[in-house]
């Protein structure tokens, strides 16, 4: 025991430090990111690419907001709900944001229990995450319906620049699609966890390959990313 510990500290001393660690990892063979599985690496790179997609969506929205000749509708009025006799600005969005951020918390817990091989808790927490995600999409559908009934269309709206509706439906729609896909995959993976596929090594239906508990964490990466993107949409679209 003591010997093992000793060898470990020696190794640590021999390993170069700080950015030199990065350099030596990249200079080594086999893997550039040590101890990062293929799936995780792939998800990170996908998210990098997806970051570009969302950034360009937001930049384009800002550009048309500048190029349009009509006034931009005031988001705090447009996104207000009439509750208890008065208009409360952004109340629905506040709740939606809260729901989504909460779901990030439950997702993180699911990842944790996944690594402890606690099937039941992992599956339940993933289902809770999926339910929160579905609630988010549901509230978004409600918001869309409300705006459509008030006359907002992709090509125009009663209050000013038509680009308002175009950007709104496009960006929230694209984000909502991401959440929806996330919910679907959460349900699929939760089922597999619940059934114990990752303990018994059952092969996937399509891929004929065995999955691992790590998929929960990879799912988590995606889910946190989608939440993070929402924060930017919230800031740039609703608060500005």
């Amino acid at each position: 025991m003591a010997e093992v510990a000793l060898r470990k500290t020696q190794d640590a001393a021999a390993r170069p430090r700080h950015w030199r660690v990065v350099a030596s990892d990249w200079a080594s063979d086999q893997t550039a990111f040590k101890n990062v599985s293929w799936g995780k690496a792939m998800m990170w790179i996908f998210l990098l690419s997806d970051t570009f997609v969302f950034s360009i969506f937001l930049l384009s929205y800002m550009t048309v907001r500048m190029s349009t000749t009509q006034t931009w509708p005031n988001p705090s009025q447009v996104f207000a709900l009439h509750i208890g006799g008065q208009d409360i600005p952004l109340i629905l969005i506040a709740i939606m944001t809260f729901v989504l951020i909460t779901s990030s918390g439950t997702m993180a817990m699911a990842v944790n229990y996944g690594y402890r091989r606690d099937r039941k808790k992992t599956a339940v927490l993933m289902l809770v995450t999926a339910a929160l995600g579905a609630t988010f999409v549901g509230m978004q559908a409600f918001e869309w319906t409300k705006l459509i009934m008030e006359g907002v269309r992709p090509w125009g709206n009663p209050w000013g620049a038509p680009q308002f509706g175009s950007s709104f439906f496009m960006i929230t729609g694209f984000h909502g699609t991401h959440v929806t896909f996330g919910v679907i995959f959460l349900l699929i993976i939760a089922r597999k966890v619940w059934r114990g596929d990752f303990d018994t090594g059952r092969a996937g239906f399509f891929t004929s390959r065995r999955g691992r508990y790590e998929i929960v964490e990879i799912m988590g990466l995606y889910w946190h990313f989608v939440d993070l993107v929402w924060v930017f949409i919230f800031a740039f679209f609703y608060l500005w």
Partner: peptide
């Protein structure tokens, strides 16, 4: 991308 970064054989450094 992931194959190049994470699936090289032993001794195959990037350089």
């Amino acid at each position: 991308v992931v194959t190049v970064l994470q699936a090289r054989t032993r001794g195959m450094t990037l350089m």
